[in-house]
Design a protein around this nucleic acid. Sequence first.
DNA 1: GATGAATGAGGGTTCATTCAT
DNA 2: AATGAATGAACCCTCATTCAT
Lengths: 209, 209, 209, 209
Amino acid sequence: MSSPRIKSDKAQARTEAQRERILAAAQRCFIEQGFHAAGMARIAEAAGMSPGLIYRYFDSKAAIIRAIIARQLERLNQDISLNRPVDLAAEMTAKFVGGHGCNPHDLSPALLLELSAEATRDPEIHAVVRHFDQNLRNALVQWLMRGTDTGGHALPEARACEAALLLQLLFEGMKVRQTRDPGLDPALLEASLRRFLPFVLAGGAAAAG
Amino acid sequence: MSSPRIKSDKAQARTEAQRERILAAAQRCFIEQGFHAAGMARIAEAAGMSPGLIYRYFDSKAAIIRAIIARQLERLNQDISLNRPVDLAAEMTAKFVGGHGCNPHDLSPALLLELSAEATRDPEIHAVVRHFDQNLRNALVQWLMRGTDTGGHALPEARACEAALLLQLLFEGMKVRQTRDPGLDPALLEASLRRFLPFVLAGGAAAAG
Amino acid sequence: MSSPRIKSDKAQARTEAQRERILAAAQRCFIEQGFHAAGMARIAEAAGMSPGLIYRYFDSKAAIIRAIIARQLERLNQDISLNRPVDLAAEMTAKFVGGHGCNPHDLSPALLLELSAEATRDPEIHAVVRHFDQNLRNALVQWLMRGTDTGGHALPEARACEAALLLQLLFEGMKVRQTRDPGLDPALLEASLRRFLPFVLAGGAAAAG
Amino acid sequence: MSSPRIKSDKAQARTEAQRERILAAAQRCFIEQGFHAAGMARIAEAAGMSPGLIYRYFDSKAAIIRAIIARQLERLNQDISLNRPVDLAAEMTAKFVGGHGCNPHDLSPALLLELSAEATRDPEIHAVVRHFDQNLRNALVQWLMRGTDTGGHALPEARACEAALLLQLLFEGMKVRQTRDPGLDPALLEASLRRFLPFVLAGGAAAAG
DNA sequence: GATGAATGAGGGTTCATTCAT
DNA sequence: AATGAATGAACCCTCATTCAT
């Protein structure tokens, strides 16, 4: 009676593992070549399997793209750990400098841009992106509202919303900069952030850097 | 002596008109479907001509893309008129709200994003984008350094550079927001900008709104 | 009453002149690029006229090809002047060496080959080629049969036919050589011809150089 | 250890078989329509497969052409068996008569001509053709220099070179004849060859038929 | 007569997807 | 579960030909 259950569990685990292999391989390919230039054959090769097998785990190339986006955004969500002392300027600069590499755990900037453009056309992508964005914004707002004793900034809600939006604009603006001017001097970026972020985090009040 | 000239002028005018028709049609298609998903046949249809005819005016699809980019960036360059009193917060918000439409004179945000991603792979696009970026940055720096009597902000060079970079991040961040959250409350955006831009334009000094 | 006649004559002359311009231009293009690679646009340009105008004088590209072949073979026919002392070995070698150039009066070897291949498929071309070939063979036979006092070789008819065929094989073999081994040492070619042609011209009898 | 090998062998065999099918189909199409007039769709149809599949086995149409040429020339190379008593006149005549058919093992004359013309423009084709030509010439020279006891003609080198060139001219001249005058009387051809070849094979010395 | 812009069928090629094994 | 050969529609692009001017 349990034999089929056990088999099913094993099978499910294997299925999940296979999906992961495919997603990882596809992400590598997409980062290197973009969504449309990366062929299924290449993805299959990178995943160490045959092209046909991929279709046992995903309905289509578009489905893989959606899955990657969802997985990536989920990871980002988990990465937002604002329950600690944060040197935002330093961390953002580090992200900018390090983001060009093919750290498979990070979404490459070019991919994020293609992804955002695609959200304009694919409602499913749009939905998942929206969901992530709201999560991030909420997290930022909570962080900004939290007391300074817990690493927060004690902003009133209205100010927190404004500041969160501004931070998001800066985050995303940096992604665009990464693709269009990867050689941007990190020192300038950090100086710029270090000068203005305190105002943002202070909700617009004069801040003591 | 003038007869051939006149004919040539007419022909040249027609040629330019045809190129414009093609670029406009292509831009519409690209916005709707993306660079790679828009086929030449569809572009031709949108332009009201046969596919073959397009190749009398452009060498390739890639050439059309480059022409659109170059044209759009040129227009942006011309639009940057900082020799006047500027209410940046209001203007940026207006840009955000108005930018969703298919105003053929404006670069759609989705296109800008795909374009930036494409710059990662096409050196020619990268070059034209870089050229525009530097122009914009220079214009911003000059504006920030200029005396207040001429609409400037009288910042020293170092501060101006930092502030210009931050402004650019905000501009581009807004483009991403447009694609990912087109319903963003304009009032929140404007409030946010109105609160923080003065600090930026003041080079980081406490500013009197 | 005569006015239309006169006009018609003038017109006919002009028509012929135009056809000639087109044929000359086309031949240049064909030699340079081959029959299929040479486009009508390029031919029109070379002829100094518009593509459309060509179709007033020729029904199609194929018609131009046929006309060129016919004209060329006619010219070759006229060129065969065997009523004179001939040093065949020297003349053939000279033809080989000089034939690579773009002497517009000569059929380029590559063209002759393409032409011959095309004769396999186009009955009209086949017919015109056959007609020329027979003319040439007849001329050779007559020459070989003519008395030595008139530059001939006084062969009996049977021997003349055999020798004429052999000469033709050599002529055409040289055309193939020209395309496949244009660097062939002319000295070797001439030596070879000089050694064996006397036997051929003597109808197979031992010959005294 | 052998299981993958066996599979690989099977696969390799199938691959080779498919390549052969494609080459055979293409050769048929090329003979019927010429290199440029034969479309990939038609070739695919003739090979009983889809157009796309061809590209699993060949990079391009040009690659197919090159493969056909190379294969054909290789076959010709193998066919040159001069280590035996040879009645050249009879064999050449037989080749002429039999060569019109679509014997897939023989290069059709029309193809050889187009091929030679193509060598004028495609360096890769030129190279393979040159290589074959030199092989043939060398084989002929060796044969002519070899002692008569081993089927050769005992010519000194200089004479052998001259004679080899002449033979090649005759071979190739016959290919041209085949396309332009396929109805040429074989009896005349054989008579002509029989009369003059002995002189050639004798290096130009008077020969006893 | 002359133009050259315009056509559109067809070219070679790619690639997401399917299916016999 | 897995393969990878096979499909075929769609891609971008060319060019002989036509036609409004």
